Simulated scan of single mutants.
Amino acid sequence: MSNNSVELKGLNAKLRILRGIIRRNNLSVMEFVYHNYVLRVNEEVVKNNEYLICMVCGSHLNITREHIIPRWCFRKDTKKYFDITVNGHTVTYNKATIPTCSTCNAELLNSLERYIQKLFHEGFEKDFAFNIFELQHIIRWLETIDYKFQIMNISKKFLSPKNGKHIPYLSDFPLYLLLPNKGYSPAKILSTIRYAHKRLAVKDKANHVNSLLIFKTSNQHFHFFHTIDDFIFLEIPQYKIALFYFFKEQFKETTVAYKKAMEVINKVY
């Protein structure tokens, strides 16, 4: 058995474990999100726990910080940042994290990220001709990033707009509640986060491969934009690859997905 076969077998075993713990603990993780970030009494957030839990499996032991976007994507550059549309603040990719236990962080999620990094490293040599199983792993990775952003947005407070007037009423609202063009109610937010978490437990992503577009790029800079539960764009220059993925929409033909993706890219990028 080749080293690649052994590595892939190990990854699949860890992904089975990951899917299992997500299915078993979805309810407890969502209860924590609801009681600590969504529930409001007399217009104030009520936190029912003084400790953090792993936002993947729900454990409160050995909590670490999991980077939303892996550090290798932005070459560990601590100065690179993205804008928070809602309040005009910026967050460095290096500080954009969510709480996860050491097992989910260092073993399960890290196994998938290492595999994706190797896939991209070798992809240019193969003209990015990924097979159906590799495409499904890329999709799973991008869905994991979306879920982590959803957790960041529900746990991070609005505070005050940068260079704007302080709004006491909104200061402790989660960013998620104030996302533009969403208009989510608390119930809808919780439902969306629950679905994003459950989505990580789905093994077969074959129906979504036409929603994933992969481009070669000669750009020298890392770029990223993302709309929760809608689409994501990542451009990773060291591997000469750019990705665009629609989280919910499915397409019979990639040409249709490509046309729609380019409309978004030309508008945003």
Rank of each mutant, 00 (worst) to 15 (best):
T85A: 13
E235T: 10
I116P: 03
I22D: 01
H166A: 02
P99S: 13
I116R: 02
R23I: 11
Q250Y: 05
L119M: 11
K248R: 12
N49K: 13
I236C: 04
K216S: 04
N207T: 05
T92I: 03
M30Q: 12
I84G: 07
T97C: 14
V6P: 00
P180K: 07
I132G: 00
H221E: 05
I154A: 00
A96R: 01
T144N: 08
H208Q: 15
E134N: 12
K118G: 09
A201P: 12
I132C: 00
E44T: 09
D127V: 03
I241Y: 00
N219D: 06
N110H: 11
T144E: 03
C54M: 14
K80A: 08
E143M: 09
L11S: 10
T92R: 04
F74D: 01
T64P: 08
Y115V: 04
F74Q: 07
Y51R: 06
E263G: 13
L52W: 09
T92V: 00
N207S: 10
G123W: 03
Y93F: 13
S160L: 07
K188I: 05
K76Y: 05
L27A: 05
Y34L: 05
I167P: 01
V46L: 10
A106C: 01
L212M: 08
R65C: 05
E66W: 10
M1F: 01
H35G: 14
P99T: 14
E235A: 10
D146M: 08
H121Q: 04
R194E: 13
K240I: 00
C73K: 02
N49P: 07
S218K: 06
E253C: 05
C73Y: 09
V45R: 13
L27R: 12
L142C: 02
A261D: 12
G183K: 10
L112W: 04
N110I: 01
S28E: 06
S218G: 09
L142A: 03
F82P: 07
L179W: 08
K9V: 05
R65L: 13
T64M: 15
A13R: 07
G58N: 12
C54Y: 14
I265V: 12
L61D: 09
I145P: 12
N48W: 02
V91P: 01
